[in-house]
């Protein structure tokens, strides 16, 4: 709408001022599921630390294994990498699907969506603000988890150089910190597709659980398809295929190619899914 036409609007109304991010953040933050999810993500590293501390100790002269889980207690950095590796395939997917899948569908479920639209918050703007906030929460979750793991791991296992899974080589702790940034960055980008998928489903259903479950369900289907070797290189275009590409950032030789491909696939899906979400929602009859 052009400013000229706002002359007919109520005084003080301007479409670009509707649903400020601050308001949407507050609206979402006080929700129980937001708090529970963050609580879980914050607590998980500590639970794992306890598990590693009290689990049966491996005998000292055993051949040192080089699996990521066996190296977890080697240092805080190793521990953070381990926590990320166990949570990226499911926990973070659920967290992202929750924040992005719930956002519109729950408003529809509460019937508050129609009052927002009649306020009026223009539909594109409503989606945009909600998407930004949901992505913000998702990103916070993805960033918080490894940081908390780093803190917990460092307190529990000390600040040492990282031992690379597989080869057992060590990289200096300070050298690996920027690599850790890459890992987190890649995790953010690779979860974009989950976010977009959940968001799209969120705009078409009134059931928040349906949106979250639908996104996670499709994610699982993709993971299963990925195991079908017969699909050959087609699998490279599955959104889950490059999930573990961030491991390359912790290899002695930083290899970008996998992460580039993963980011490419993720951005591709995300762009299209989000565009479809906006397109659908624009013309949708809101009957909830």
């Amino acid at each position: 709408m052009t400013p000229a036409t706002t002359g007919t609007a109520a005084p003080g109304y301007a479409p670009h001022r509707t649903l400020p991010l601050k308001v949407e953040i507050v609206r979402q933050f006080k929700r129980r599921r937001t708090l529970v999810m963050f609580g879980l993500l914050m607590a998980l590293p500590w639970i794992l630390v306890v598990a590693f501390q009290f689990g049966p100790q491996a005998s000292g002269d055993r051949q040192p294994s080089l699996r990521i889980s066996d190296l977890a207690s080697a240092s805080g950095l190793n521990f953070a990498a381990f926590v990320l590796s166990v949570s990226v395939s499911f926990l973070l997917v659920v967290a992202v699907a929750l924040f992005c899948g719930d956002t519109v569908a729950s408003e529809a479920n509460w019937s508050s969506l129609r009052y927002l639209l009649a306020a009026p918050v223009p539909r594109d703007r409503l989606l945009r603000q909600k998407l930004i906030v949901a992505l913000g929460y998702s990103a916070t979750a993805i960033i918080c988890l490894p940081l908390m793991a780093l803190l917990a791991g460092t307190l529990a296992f000390g600040w040492h150089d990282i031992q690379v899974p597989g080869t057992g080589e060590t990289i200096a702790a300070l050298d690996v910190l920027p690599r850790f940034g890459i890992v987190i960055g890649y995790a953010l980008v690779s979860q974009l597709v989950v976010a977009a998928l959940a968001f799209l489903i969120s705009t078409v259903t009134d059931s928040p659980l349906g949106a979250v479950g639908g996104a996670v369900g499709l994610w699982i289907v993709s993971t299963i398809l990925q195991a079908v070797e017969a699909l050959g290189s087609l699998r490279e275009f599955l959104p889950t295929f490059w999930n573990t590409a961030w491991l390359d950032a912790l290899a002695p030789e930083l290899d970008w190619s996998g992460m580039l491909k993963g980011a490419s696939v993720s951005v591709t899906y995300a762009a299209i899914l989000i565009a479809v979400a906006f397109r659908r929602f624009r013309t949708k009859d809101v009957v909830s």
Partner: peptide
């Protein structure tokens, strides 16, 4: 409404207050 055609998100809707088919509130607030 006040001469303005109603389309989704039309600014003129800001002069309309509505209560249709029940309340819509965020239950946790």
């Amino acid at each position: 409404i006040f001469g303005e055609p109603v389309v989704p998100g039309a600014p003129v809707l800001s002069r309309l207050g509505s209560f249709v088919e029940g309340a819509g509130f965020l239950p946790h607030l």
